[in-house]
Nucleic acid binder design. Structure first.
Lengths: 247, 247
DNA sequence: CAGCCTCGGTTGTATAGACAGGCGGGCGCC
DNA sequence: GGCGCCCGCCTGTCTATACAACCGAGGCTG
């Protein structure tokens, strides 16, 4: 078997080769894909080229690699791939608005079943939890309810989260894993409404972010606050490669 | 100048070096960052290592590279980078749920100032507009209100959008440009409530997507519909490189 | 039988070298 | 002075090689 030579870079052709095997069913979820050595032998490319192809497909979520074991087709995404959310507090700061955080409380508590599962902890284990209000120009825009795995951040409760955001503190401890997000429109409960100063009958956004092994975040954000200058917004580049398939 | 040796990989250290220069203001938007050759010379790493660092930072949107010219700090994003939304109709189909679209109407109309600006058309120009309900398992989940630039899709109004989604039709005509998204939680208006079968007092999500030169989409989605099995959700990979900067 | 060791396979990283292609400025020629 | 070519710089890709770290299985030993 050989690769078509003309234009696209070799590593791109290797990526297409793997993606094609997945698309036509020759490789399904959990299957081991050819190792770098096999790709080197079968496709006639160097190991670095095969490595780059596999590394990029891993970064794109298509594959999963385990050092010393092999490369596998990643499990189907637990949910959809509809959106990707970044950190709101850093967004506010990056846009030059006056940012402030207010710590409502920091405490340890027993994890319920759902939270424990999200943190890879057995149910009933002690977890750390923080509740913060993020303000932009004195206006509360986000209520951040964060559950943290104590194993990964033993000193979490001793931090001064008016000086450094929990997100910044956790990423300083190490890279954060992939995250799952869920976003909904909800009617805020009275406590949320009070802390975010939301008028009665005003809806707000509920963002839930689960970062494996590191923390679970539940943010109740009211980004369309009267006077707030921004919405939850973003950009997307439609890579010319992601072919649109009609339903 | 030299790099601290201990644990993190060299290409990671090079990325941190560049990000640090940006964070402390030594490099600002539009500045040329050190070339691969300079990094090789100044930091004592090989060109491939420097190249990987710059390539990954480019993929993350931090830098912009021009072959033959150099590498520069990317311009600030016009809006925030908070989220990225894909196509809801295709999501439903991809997840194997029964998908159906209902066309409420197709028509041409005069563009108001805001719509015209979004379509790069002079105000008052004729534009195409479609209103569709996307259903998942007979449950309406999204009301898609789409404004299309007639120059790019002259036959738009003749299409059968129960067979092919507007998104698929437009991408078949050519790749879509970058898009800006805005998402909010709103209380739906009576028409939306009726078409999406939303109960009184239930909030819903409002998604606005502007694809430059091709179309403007206003979607009023009620994704937390009782019985609907999904939320607006997604995943994210935190590149281990994007250093967290505390506000 | 249990525990330890070794060994082969696999991924992760790093280097040196090479060639291709794009861009822009400077130099020479007209 | 103006035009065009060429050369140097820069990024993009690819190869060959090397070493490190990790995992699992199989064999050896107590």
């Amino acid at each position: 078997m050989s690769l078509t030579d003309p234009s696209p870079p070799l590593y791109q052709q290797v990526k297409s080769f793997i993606l094609g095997r997945i698309a036509d069913g020759a490789l399904v979820q959990g299957d081991q894909v050819p190792s770098e050595h096999e790709l080197t032998r079968d496709l006639g490319v160097s190991r670095m080229t095969a490595h780059r192809a596999l590394r990029e497909l891993t970064a794109e979520g298509v594959l999963r690699r385990v050092q010393g074991v092999g490369t596998f087709v990643a499990e189907a995404k637990p949910q959809s791939e509809l959106l990707e959310i970044r950190n709101i507090a850093e967004e506010i700061a990056a846009r030059g608005h006056r940012y402030a955080a207010r710590v409502i409380w920091l405490r340890r508590e027993r994890a319920g079943a759902a939270v424990a599962a999200a943190l890879d902890q057995p149910a009933g284990m002690t977890i750390f939890r923080s509740l913060l209000v993020h303000c932009e120009n004195d206006l509360p825009v986000q209520l951040e309810d964060r559950y943290v795995n104590p194993d990964f951040a033993p000193d979490y409760l001793q931090q001064d989260f008016t000086a450094i955001t929990p997100y910044a503190y956790l990423t300083a401890l190490g890279p954060l894993d992939a995250a799952e997000h869920v976003i909904e429109a909800i009617r805020p409960n009275p406590e949320t409404r009070h802390l975010l100063r939301i008028r009665a009958n005003e809806p707000c956004l509920l963002l839930q972010r689960r970062t494996w092994s590191r923390g679970l975040v539940v943010s109740r954000a009211h980004l369309t606050h009267p006077g707030s200058r921004y919405r939850l917004a973003g950009r997307q580049d439609y890579g010319s490669g992601t072919a649109a398939q009609a339903p």
